[in-house]
Nucleic acid binder design. Structure first.
Lengths: 176, 176
DNA sequence: AGGATAAAATACCGTGCGGTATAAAAATGA
DNA sequence: TCATTTTTATACCGCACGGTATTTTATCCT
């Protein structure tokens, strides 16, 4: 998971992974069934250990401003996002993934979209957000802005600048 | 250029290009010197034929709203962007490029940043935009939103939805 | 202790890559 | 017209990949 996460999933070979992990290739093969199974397992672990934080933030019911602030903190300042997000990296190169991993990516993507939409819907119902655009469009917008910020961190952009841009992007949710 | 543009530059082999172009590999090699030279030449041609449109839009001096509208049209509706943008695709996989191509990507990136900043500066000086954030941050923000929209088109997203999101993103420039 | 068994490491296979040497074909000059 | 030169096409090289067969090592169980 760390190898795929820290580097580019498409550029990390099974040979390299075996060497890093101190494991023989047949062992890896019997455990995961091949590259697709390994990538899928890595993504599963990543979703459980890292992505869950985002779902927790969205579902905490803390209201619009604090939730957005927490999302901005996570994307722009969490040290774990210094090298980007494994999920977004895999999603960006979806066509290179095996069937299991691709299916999992799409599953997570749909779940994230649902969570963002549920969060926005609850804010609109609480009167914290006027909802100029449709909830679905704004949910996708919000998710893509987070993805953009984290992807920029992987490319070594200045975190302060990333935070500035993300705050601009999410200022459209501010109720004057 | 079309092969790199339509597909993923990292997934198009020289063999495939030779077959598509009806050209032998040694001929391609004597003409371009190798994969790096070919990619660089493709990017040069792309910049001249396609990216120039963006610089024209930015430099036309049409004012804030019409220029943003033209950028939105280009990113969300221009049929040439249906399969994404070769420049953004190369930039996303910069670490896989050869030295010449990578240098050209960085050169174009810097030029684009400069053009966006000059455009915003002229709008601020004309009083069309209050300029809450620094021009440099907003120039990068603007460029990344365009990049995001075009990248989403390459992944088959609904163009109408992309336009909606891009309009939301650029609404931060609107003067009430 | 020692033979059956399970696990691990090594060596290997086919494939496609970027890149090049060699052979065939076409163009040139007198 | 025919030898020389230049261009084109074919065949090939080394390499690294994902994946597997074979051999070596370690673990049981009595």
């Amino acid at each position: 998971m760390t190898a795929y996460w820290h580097g580019d999933p498409a550029d990390v070979s099974l040979n390299a992974i075996c060497q890093m992990a101190g494991v023989s290739k047949p062992s890896l093969y019997r455990e995961f069934g091949g590259e697709d199974g390994l990538a899928r397992a890595a993504l599963d672990t990543y979703a459980e250990r890292v992505l869950s934080d985002i779902f927790v933030i969205l579902g905490a019911g803390q209201g619009l401003r604090p939730t957005l602030a927490a999302l901005i903190d996570f994307a722009a300042s969490d040290p774990r996002m210094e090298t980007g997000c494994l999920f977004y990296k895999m999603r960006a190169g979806k066509h290179r993934l095996g069937p299991q991993t691709r299916a999992r990516v799409e599953e997570i993507d749909a779940a994230a979209q649902t969570a963002y939409a549920a969060f926005l819907r609850s804010c609109r119902d609480a009167g914290e957000w006027p909802g100029g655009q449709s909830v679905d469009v704004m949910a996708k917008y919000l998710g893509e802005q987070i993805a953009l910020a984290i992807t920029q961190r992987a490319s070594g952009e200045d975190p302060a600048r990333i935070r500035d841009m993300l705050e601009v992007a999410l200022s459209v949710f501010a109720t004057p």
